[in-house]
Nucleic acid binder design. Structure first.
Lengths: 234, 234
DNA sequence: CTTTTCCGAAGTGTCGACACCTTGCGAAAA
DNA sequence: TTTTCGCAAGGTGTCGACACTTCGGAAAAG
């Protein structure tokens, strides 16, 4: 069961993006998590109505915790809650994807700057370990594993930046984009390009070359955007 | 009443940062706005408890809309809502300020890139108009007016970037920092440095020099951080 | 005195109820 | 047959209530 490892990673990364994995035990947070995962994994389609009354029935609770869960989902831009109208799963258009990728590109550039400046050699070895996993996945052509190891790599990078606010905001942005990123990696050739970029990025870190690392990081993100544009899925 | 203009600007900018100025008419949003303004203007001190029961009494409502308002405040990082404990106004330490300023620096660098690439000449003239206001304020030594015209300048810049997600996120970040930025401008010499940076920034825009604009933009933010560090108010 | 235990006041999370608003459908009008 | 209007079904925002948890101080133990 080599996939078991990836599945565990998937859950861990999803939950860490969903507010610090705190065992909150409040109904609102539980409902929030359940719905968030449904949305990012595509089981709840954009535009789908999620009215609080029906959800309350489904989860056998009152509407109060459901309403709070919906507010939490809105904070992650996964749901729109218009006043006095039924909430629905947010519809993301290409313009918005482009805007978010521009932001992600800039912030990952910052991550690279900070990693070069602050990360220990051991930290960078850690990134190299992630990259090794990516290489294996690419050789096996295992897109699913590659996707989640890639998320792990980005998350490790963000963590090494030493800026926890930055890490939080990036994982929130990443969450919104999960719906699309998954598709884009299936494009022919995309995976190898991505792998080569990671290779260059890790080298730049090893050489402590901030300018190069930031440039590669940005271009890595931008290439992801191009892939989504080309896939025409949005 | 030359100050009337600045007061209007202050309200407009605060409200635009507080979720699209929608006339929501819901109690939750009204309470959210009231508390948000109290917090960023320092009337509600960091660490101050804001429990839902007392607020409900104060606003003559039930606890339901108050709880929702608190969730909205948490989204803006103005309040912490620990599970099963009393919520309180978020305590921001120097580490967090530094982290947020790093993010702001990177994102304003992106803004500058985008402004150079996309803004019309008229748009850049608009920035020049804001800068004229700043010059006047500096000559008069009017720190309060300078502060808000500065916020207006940054906001106009973000708007010219053509990336509305970016604009939203920056104004959210700005909101959190209002509490400190105000103080930092009062430091001797700070205002003139800031003014000179704005001058250089507008020139770079006029010359369509992306690299210079981004560099100045980042350094402008970083200088703000240094001022806060030096003021020792955090 | 100091430390521990216990209790009551106060606050949180959740519930079911109710008035108002929104919406889609069917009856009446054109 | 199409358009307009009105109304019932269902959803939202808000409320007051209740059980459970937290917290701080008083009483008991050391």
């Amino acid at each position: 069961m080599t996939d078991g490892g990836v599945e565990d990673l998937r859950k861990e990364l999803l939950f860490s993006a969903l507010r610090g994995s705190a065992e909150d035990s409040s109904l609102a947070v539980a409902i929030f998590r359940e719905l968030a995962i449904s949305i990012v994994e595509g089981r709840l389609q954009p535009g789908h109505e999620v009215n609080s009354a029906e959800l309350a029935r489904r989860f056998s609770t009152s509407r109060t915790p459901v309403r709070e869960a919906l507010l939490l989902l809105e904070r992650e831009s996964l749901v729109i809650v218009p006043p006095r109208r039924r909430p629905y799963v947010s519809q993301v258009d290409m313009r918005q994807v482009r805007e978010i990728y521009e932001i992600r590109g800039s912030l990952y550039g910052l991550v690279s700057d900070l990693v070069v400046a602050r990360a220990s050699d051991e930290g960078i070895d850690g990134l190299r370990a992630w990259q090794k996993l990516l290489t294996d996945d690419a050789e096996r052509g295992d897109v699913h594993a590659y996707f989640w190891h890639n998320v792990g790599f980005r998350n490790a990078e963000a963590s090494l930046s030493g800026n926890s606010e930055l890490q939080r905001r990036l994982s929130s942005l990443g969450l919104q984009m999960h719906r699309f990123r998954h598709l884009s990696l299936s494009l022919p050739g995309r995976l190898l390009h991505s792998l080569a970029d990671h290779e260059r990025l890790v080298s730049a870190y090893a050489d402590r070359d901030a300018a190069l690392a930031a440039a590669v990081s940005k271009s890595l993100v931008l290439r992801g955007l191009r892939a989504i544009e080309r896939s025409g899925q949005v």
